[in-house]
Nucleic acid binder design. Structure first.
Length: 523
RNA sequence: GGCCCUAUCGUCUAGCGGUUAGGACACGGCCCUUUCAAGGCCGCGAUACGGGUUCGAAUCCCGUUAGGGUCACCA
């Protein structure tokens, strides 16, 4: 990479400076070992604004897999340097969501660890200290430009169809003079002094060499006027001090990576290896957004997606297992993990496939686990009992894609649903096949026969079906016609879990009561 | 618009110079069946385009086109 001459000598000077820092004590995140030689340490660094994002889980998953595969550490760092948007509620929601998914980190705000604090708002002194080094070495400078001036410059550049970037107005300012203005209380920011010429290159693990002309890189603000760092400064400083070896983040960061590389150079630190994951997409292929796609992990949880299913699904996006299997556990994914099988094209987040996958996980649950999950996640309908749900579980699981559907699917078990009397009459193309009187008559026969069964035999689905079938055939009813009439009488709906099994679950007394009600409706 | 990334069925993907381009979701049909599901079988359906390199390109290179990202004192 062709650095301008000045930049190179500056970098050399920095190395000596960095050496002093190391002697000074525990500020030595960057050992001289390469990233291949150091123990793997990766992180996910969400910003606590709004709902916990599905993209955070996606990136966390891949970081986690790599860390576990390599026997390294996985860290959570909260990037809350935006005072206006960060909230404690959002932070708590991130912790909750990640733990729900089983993406447990080794170090983090709520997990502790030797490289804390893990919340950037608590690290201000560190950034102030580090940015001063940049000021001293000439890699950063004070800027007093007002928002208005910046806006004007941008307008002028737009009009001239030139590049949109800071014009370097404050860069030539004398350091002593600048500090006098700072001391006088004038608002300021600190900017990165990007070399005017040359280019900055880095290697992306997935895409190879990526090259940027320095002339296209902005003099990025490092320290905001509120005294807090921007993402660029904070993440570079923290990744270094936290001894992060691999930065795996979303593709949207590629264009700011050269700024980070320049920062590592300016500090005299070894840059981590960069891995830019593809961006999750909406159906129209734009970056996934809450306007076009559910993005909140809380939403997925409230819909009744199982964490293991969601994780499996995320693992299918931009990634594939060596044997092509599509259903796998986190442990299996870790076991087989390799960056070599990560794609670079942004996958569309397909909710339909998630539904299918979630359904397969729900069906694989034991009835006991199924009910336990419903209870734990508050999906047990009002009035439902775990005992009855357990009995119904095998019938319900097979028809459930999301746990949230269970309430509707089993509604008739906990209450008698209203329906129109006409719904009891079998019909074909709008034409009734039997009159109300005929229907009432056969229902009365059914009630009689079922009562006998109840008195003499076990209340089994097979026995009920057999007698109902016999009854229908002895009359001029097709079994399916009678079954549909019974289905309406018992469940109140034309679509339900299998009729006779359902009656068994419902119980003798309740089923007979509903038959009586149906007969009454036909009088 | 500048810069950067990307390009196999509608969607998720396999493929890493020689395959009838494979699988999954979705969709359609059939079977099973008591409705809905689940399950089984079958079908539909892709290498963006144009140049090269090569005996041979989905695979390698270049260009075009298209899509995306990014150009904040947000991350």
């Amino acid at each position: 990479m062709a650095q301008e001459p000045g930049g190179q000598s500056q970098a050399a000077a920095d190395r000596g400076y960095a050496g002093q820092v190391e002697q000074a004590g525990r500020d030595d995140g960057g050992s001289q070992l390469s990233n291949q030689e150091r123990p793997v340490r990766v992180r996910v660094a969400p910003s606590p604004t709004g709902d916990p994002h599905v993209g955070t889980a996606y990136i966390a998953l891949f970081n986690m897999c790599f860390a576990r595969k390599m026997g390294g550490q996985f860290i959570l760092r909260i990037e809350d340097t935006d005072q206006a948007r960060s909230t404690p509620e959002s932070e708590a929601a991130i912790f909750r969501a990640l733990h729900w998914l089983g993406l447990d980190y080794d170090e983090g705000p709520d997990a502790g660890g030797p490289h804390g604090p893990y919340r950037q708002s608590e690290r201000s002194a560190i950034y102030a200290r580090e940015v001063k080094k940049l000021l001293d070495s000439g890699h950063a400078y004070y800027c007093f430009c007002t928002a208005e001036r910046l806006a004007q410059v941008k307008e002028a550049q737009k009009a001239a169809k030139g590049q949109l970037r800071y014009d370097g107005h404050c860069r030539p300012l004398d350091r002593a003079e600048a500090e006098r203005r700072v001391a006088a209380g004038e608002p300021f920011v600190i900017r990165l002094a990007v070399p005017a010429t040359g280019e900055t290159t880095f290697r992306d693990r997935l895409r190879g060499e990526i090259k940027f002309d320095n002339s296209t890189i902005d003099d990025q603000v490092l320290l905001k006027s509120d005294g807090l760092p921007t993402y660029h400064l904070a993440s570079v400083v923290d990744d270094h001090l936290m001894e992060i070896t691999h930065v795996c983040r979303a593709e949207e960061w590629i264009t700011s990576t050269p700024k980070h590389v320049l920062l590592y150079d300016a500090f005299g630190w070894t840059a981590p290896e960069f891995i830019h994951m593809p961006l999750l997409r909406n159906a129209d292929r734009s970056k996934i957004s809450k306007r076009k796609n559910p993005t909140s992990l809380d939403w997925y949880r409230s819909q009744g997606f199982l964490p293991e299913a969601l994780l499996n699904f995320l693992g299918l996006l931009g990634y594939s297992m060596p044997d092509g299997r599509e259903q796998f556990t986190l442990a299996e994914m870790i076991d087989e993990f390799s960056w070599d099988r990560v794609n670079t094209t942004g996958p569309v987040f397909d909710l339909e496939k998630l539904d299918w996958l979630n359904g397969t996980y729900i069906r694989a649950l034991s009835p006991e686990t199924f009910v336990a999950r419903l209870q734990a996640e508050n999906f047990l309908p009002v009035g439902a009992t775990p005992e009855k749900m357990l009995a119904a579980a095998p019938l319900v699981q097979e028809r459930t894609k999301r746990l949230s559907e269970v309430a509707d699917l089993t509604a008739f078990l906990w209450q008698e649903l209203p329906y129109e009397p006409s719904a009891l009459l079998p019909a074909k193309k709008g034409q009734p096949l039997h009159t109300a009187a005929e229907t009432r008559q056969i229902l009365e026969q059914v009630r009689t026969v079922f009562s006998e069964i109840a008195a003499t035999q076990t209340w089994s689905a097979a026995a009920l079906e057999q007698s109902a079938r016999t009854l229908a055939e002895s009359g001029d009813w097709k079994p399916t016609e009678l079954f549909m009439t019974l289905r309406i009488a018992i469940t109140g709906r034309p679509v339900s879990t299998p009729l006779f099994e359902t009656m068994v679950v419902l119980g003798l007394e309740e089923a007979m009561k509903r038959l009586d009600h149906a007969i009454a409706k036909l009088e």
